[in-house]
Nucleic acid binder design. Structure first.
Length: 421
DNA sequence: GATCCACAGGAAATAGTGGCTT
DNA sequence: AAGCCACTATTTCCTGTGGATC
């Protein structure tokens, strides 16, 4: 059997398990779809669209529901001459300000692949910074006016912009204020329930006309979703009867996210698949594969997180590792700062101030690399931190970034934290 | 019980980088 | 080239908190 055999044992169609795969029918979201569709109905009549806000944690079908409904809506409006429906959709991941969202909207409209780009006015895209904010909004209005008809602007993961909600104020304003010939609707999709509360009052009034809540899936719903997907993606009888309930249960406990559940199943299938190839015969997916998958996914996320740290983030993680090797964790921020300051000295770089260290530490905590621990000394509510990943994986990640960690590794071996290489 | 200590974390200012306009 | 503009990372300043201390 060759190393690159095309034979596939477990997986029939891997695409069906991919994160970006969107089924034509969305399971278990009947009520939400009805409510959502109701909010979009004015579009069919050619009326001013509602602004719609969708709330729910990641992986509960908000984006999928949007695509399902908007496709239906496009098909329906195609039947009528008097409604010209156009869509502009962007994902706001990584965009931290209204300014950036506006620039990305403009660029999306102008991107050559966008169906709304007209041949007559091939405007060039804007750079991400440099213009006054006013200018960017004006360009956006101009573009929207050129498109005309009914325009639905979909802002996925809009909570990324945090408190800076200018764009949400400006977009609805564009339709009434600039007497444009455009019927404009905004669809905002947020993973964060609190996002609504943080919006300024002027935005809340106009924008939150319709809201649809997407609750997390429970284990039963996840099982149903997974079964449907597994039927397509996997060969028959390649998994034991506990596999799907287990994936569903693990995901339901944690996030209620279908994305997470599918990720587990896919990874478990991957593992079983490569075992099968090694063995040269089919190996069923088992509970153990799912548990291995869970571990592998978590480890990968943390390792990715560690590699994307800034230089000082790495110093701080290194400081935490040395403290751990000395058996001193959990440790108060003060001691962490001392250790960190010593380390930066050794590497000939200036240490950050105390305040900034706090930010880095809570950042690392947020990414699951450190864990904040209750202070046991009885004194005040001070923060203490310890590694929330194995020492081995932290050291491994750090060794990719630093050269001289031999001492640290030896000390860790002496203290039984890791095995000798 | 008033005061102090040591820290957490918010808000605003600053520095450095890089693009845009005139 | 000068003067804007926005971004990110960081520093400075400051308020609040809860146990410790007097």
């Amino acid at each position: 059997m060759g190393r690159f055999s095309r034979e596939s044992f477990v997986i029939r169609d891997k695409d069906v398990l991919r994160e970006d795969y969107e089924p034509e029918n969305l399971e278990e979201r009947g009520e939400e779809l009805d409510e959502y569709a109701g909010a979009l109905r004015p579009v069919v009549q050619g009326w001013q669209p509602n602004n719609v806000f969708l709330y729910g944690v990641t992986g509960v079908g908000k984006t999928a529901a949007t695509h399902v409904l908007l496709n239906e809506l496009l098909e329906t409006t195609d039947e009528y001459d008097d409604v010209g429906l156009n869509l502009v959709e962007i994902n706001c991941t990584g965009l931290t300000s209204s300014y950036q969202v506006a620039v990305n909207l403009v660029n999306e409209i102008r991107s050559p692949s966008h169906p709304l780009t007209t041949v007559e006015s091939p405007r060039s895209t804007m750079s991400e910074t440099g213009y006054p904010q006013k200018r960017v909004f004006n360009e956006l209005y101009d573009d929207l006016e050129d498109i005309g008809g009914t325009v639905l602007v979909v802002l996925d993961e809009i909570d990324n912009i945090g408190g800076d909600d200018d764009i949400l104020y400006e977009l609805p304003r564009a339709r009434s204020h600039l007497d444009l010939d455009v019927k404009l609707g905004v669809i905002g999709i947020s993973n964060d329930f609190k996002f609504r509360d943080n919006l300024s009052p002027k935005v809340k009034d106009t924008l939150c006309e319709e809201e649809v809540l997407f609750p997390p899936y429970d284990a039963t719903e996840l099982q149903n979703i997974l079964s449907k997907r597994a039927d397509q993606a996997l060969f028959d009888d390649v998994f034991t009867s506990e596999v799907i309930p287990l994936c569903a249960a693990l995901a339901a406990q944690d996030s209620g996210s279908a994305r997470q559940a599918l990720r587990l199943l896919r990874k478990a299938a991957d593992i079983a698949q490569s075992e099968s190839i090694d063995a040269g015969e089919e190996r069923q997916i088992t509970e153990d594969h799912v548990r291995d998958a869970k571990r592998a996914i978590e480890r990968q996320q943390v390792v990715d997180g560690m590699h994307s740290l800034t230089r000082h983030g790495q110093y701080i993680l290194l400081a935490m590792c040395t403290l751990t090797a000395d058996g001193d964790t959990p440790e108060r921020t003060k001691k962490i700062h001392e250790q960190y300051t010593k380390l930066t000295g050794e590497f000939g770089s200036e240490p950050l101030k105390r305040r900034r260290l706090h930010d880095h530490l809570s950042d690392l905590t947020l990414h699951g690399i450190l864990e904040q621990v209750e202070d046991s000394s009885g004194r005040g509510n001070y923060n203490q931190y310890k590694l929330d990943v194995t020492f081995a994986s932290a050291l491994e990640a750090l060794e990719d970034e630093f050269d001289n960690l031999g001492n640290l590794r030896r000390k860790a071996v002496r203290n039984g934290l890791i095995d000798s290489p």
